[in-house]
Design a protein around this nucleic acid. Structure first.
Lengths: 196, 196
DNA sequence: CGCGTACCGTAACACCGTTGCGTTACGCTG
DNA sequence: CAGCGTAACGCAACGGTGTTACGGTACGCG
């Protein structure tokens, strides 16, 4: 007997899509529920019935960002050489961040005030790193890397890649420092430091 | 003939101080000009006559953050061994970030919407890295590091340290992983990758 | 003493996220 | 076929934000 719902899955996707565009075009500040609703031809209520709140909508973008990230990392072909594989993964990581810089900002910096990823989103984020974890464990098992705790190499590699990419994206690097030029070299040097 | 000004240097410092406390206590979202003015016993106009706008006030916090950062990095004693010095600088970097996590967020993530550091602030930020640049150049000159472009080692070291610290502060690292435990080891491995 | 003037607090503006309320629009029932 | 019950939804209000225009204020000089 109720009136049929128009706040459906299609609208949910449309809102997510438009929200991503608004953020990508003018930054996180430009994401307003009123503007978003108007763009999608609906009302602000839609966001609340479909997502719960603005932070919850951003959480959905966070999940979407990690999904795209995971796709790219999983698509990296392995060579069997752990150092070369770490470099490849790092290159894919940077490419992914540059493809969606504002999604990257949502994922790794707190660019939307008040947003904290929920538990499920955190698990997903964690799972995205599986290719990295796998490569490091294989490198240790094969005797290529020193016999240290895998986490040490995993976090060190992740930290370097994340640090370089986020310095680059946030514009904190002095202009004469080009990440592109030294990126692969830095990744290789870092991985080499763990060789047996 | 005018009435004597109460929006003076003392009030400027008081506002900066209170703004830092508000941000440190409840995050960047909690920094409201009305609350800040009330806390300081003045009106919102003070912020506009002393700083220009809210982003300009945040810019002053940005500068203050880099000043403290520079103090700590400059206080690091050198051993003459480039690898050991890079580790020491990294430890000081992390300590500085942990001492003022919300200032760190202002400095390196875009945690306050609408804020972009101005040119002078950018120069100051750059100058903060001098101890790092110096250590790397000496390490290359002494023949300890390979004869690569200094920028490669500088950016790689900075990237690793920044990446680890910001992953740690943003809570993106898996809970079972302790940065403290593997931090120095990772820095040493990274620096070692550049040895001749 | 009072005038001139720079200063500064108040209040308005436009916008934000969020929420309660009243309307709407359907499908089942009589 | 008419009407009712009910879930869904848009509108408008609420308390907040940064910012700005304005008008009262309080001093030093003539």
């Amino acid at each position: 007997m109720p009136r049929p719902r128009t706040h459906d899955e299609a609208l949910r996707l449309k809102l997510l899509d438009r929200a991503g565009e608004l953020i990508s075009a003018d930054g996180p500040k430009a994401l307003s529920l009123r503007k978003l609703a108007a763009d999608a031809g609906t009302s602000t209520t839609a966001v609340y019935s479909l997502f719960g709140s603005k932070p919850d909508l951003v959480n959905a973008l966070y999940v979407e960002g990690f999904r795209r990230f995971g796709e790219r990392l999983n698509a990296v072909e392995r060579t069997g050489d752990a150092v070369a594989d770490l470099v490849r993964l790092g290159v894919a990581y940077r490419a992914s961040a540059q493809a969606d810089p504002h999604l990257y900002a949502i994922m790794f910096t707190r660019s939307v005030p008040g947003f904290e990823p929920n538990a499920e989103a955190d698990r997903l984020a964690r799972a995205t790193l599986e290719p990295l974890e796998d490569t490091v464990r294989r490198g240790i098992a094969s005797g290529q890397f020193a016999d240290v705790a895998p986490e040490a190499i995993i976090v060190s590699s992740w930290g370097l890649v994340h640090g370089l990419v986020s310095l680059e994206l946030s514009g904190n690097l002095p202009p004469e420092f080009s990440v592109s030029g030294a990126y692969e070299e830095a990744l290789r040097a870092n991985a080499s430091g763990w060789l047996k």
